[in-house]
Design a protein around this nucleic acid. Structure first.
Lengths: 203, 203
DNA sequence: CTAGTGTTTGGGCAACTGCCCAAGTTAATC
DNA sequence: GATTAACTTGGGCAGTTGCCCAAACACTAG
């Protein structure tokens, strides 16, 4: 009966990951220490190195888990959108909760920066980002948006940039930004390069 | 003759600031220590607290000095641009040297994140950012770009976002991004409602 | 019961942290 | 020369850092 030690161990591991995520946001990637994480998780400091090979691997695990979760929670919303505009609106709407100084925004940025200094993190983040952009680009292409790959890249970058700037200036809201970003999705009706020639989208 | 001690002191102070700037980029804001900065600057550790009240004030001073310099070096270029498109092109061109993983890009992002946790830094960065956006918005307004303030905010945010993403994906180049971001500058000939239908742009 | 497996504890090590300070240097002023 | 002010040194303090490990614990299988 009761819980096995293995189960309790798994739970402790989760608590460590969650605590690490919180602390990355609060103190910054390099400001997190093993003892801090252990205290937040309510366990003794020695346990950190039982469940994780190093502090670095704990932080990497925690950050990427959180990022994948955040993206996974947005993706189904995007799937249900019909037009690229709707995709963007939903993306920005889901961003409305992210004030820039919130946990998710800061975690993303912290992880991007960590990626600058850690090849392993960089590879993992690049993968996640590519997975996010791929379906977005496909959708843009289907609806005749010019240069869909570059546009998807800019949309992703702009959303992250807005997230960043909101921390410094709360007047940068989703409402004020949305109509501007929508212009990015302009169809091109003449030839411009080799892009798919966008009919329209009534459906 | 020779140099006075005051002059040498000023030079040491500068070396400390420069060393701090480099180390923020290399190790992250919270990863910089007094002894590290002193070693990089080629002085003894005790000197840090002679020239600066605290490590925090050294980092703040260093980061904001570097940011103001970076922006100041771009602004004259923008002044000479005639159309908003030209402004954007020049902005992106100057960004070409910033590969995302370069010193300037990382320093900007590190400082944004530090601003998240330090009110003093936040205030200073917000000021610098506002100073950058103000003339940009005015220029956009003069050329009939819709919602100039919001557009300037998005342009600034997007540029920073692109800078961030380039660190993870070098294929996000200024060339691929420029034509997409240009769409943001679409003129609006009617009153603004929803999607701009992009008349044309003969200028 | 014993053995075995997985988890947890608490203490320890050597290195590092921000900050301080008495004593020293140097050049300008009297 | 003596005094002054600015700058510099090197050592020290108390606290923190990542990581390690012997011992204790909990629970299962034989």
């Amino acid at each position: 009966m009761a819980i096995t030690s293995a189960e309790r161990g798994r739970e402790v591991r989760q608590r460590l990951v969650r605590a690490a995520t919180e602390l990355i946001v609060e103190r910054g990637w390099t400001g997190v220490s093993t003892r801090l994480v252990a205290e937040r998780a309510g366990v003794t400091a020695g346990l950190v190195h039982y469940h994780f090979a190093s502090l670095r691997s704990l932080l990497t695990d925690a950050a990427l888990t959180a990022i994948r979760e955040a993206i996974a929670s947005v993706e189904p919303l995007l799937e249900r959108a019909r037009t690229p505009e709707e995709v963007l609106d939903r993306l920005l709407a889901s961003l409305a909760g992210y004030t820039g100084g919130d946990a998710t925004s800061v975690l993303f940025t912290e992880t991007y920066l960590a990626a600058t200094r850690d090849i392993e993190v960089r590879r993992a983040v690049a993968d996640v980002l590519a997975d996010f952009r791929r379906p977005l680009a496909r959708r843009l292409d289907e609806h005749g948006v010019a240069t869909p790959d570059a546009t998807a890249a800019v949309v992703a970058a702009a959303v992250d940039g807005v997230m960043l700037h909101r921390a410094l200036d709360p007047s940068v809201t989703a409402e004020s930004v949305a109509p501007v970003l929508r212009r990015i999705l302009a169809r091109d009706h003449r030839n411009h390069t080799e892009t798919t020639e966008a009919r329209e989208d009534r459906e």
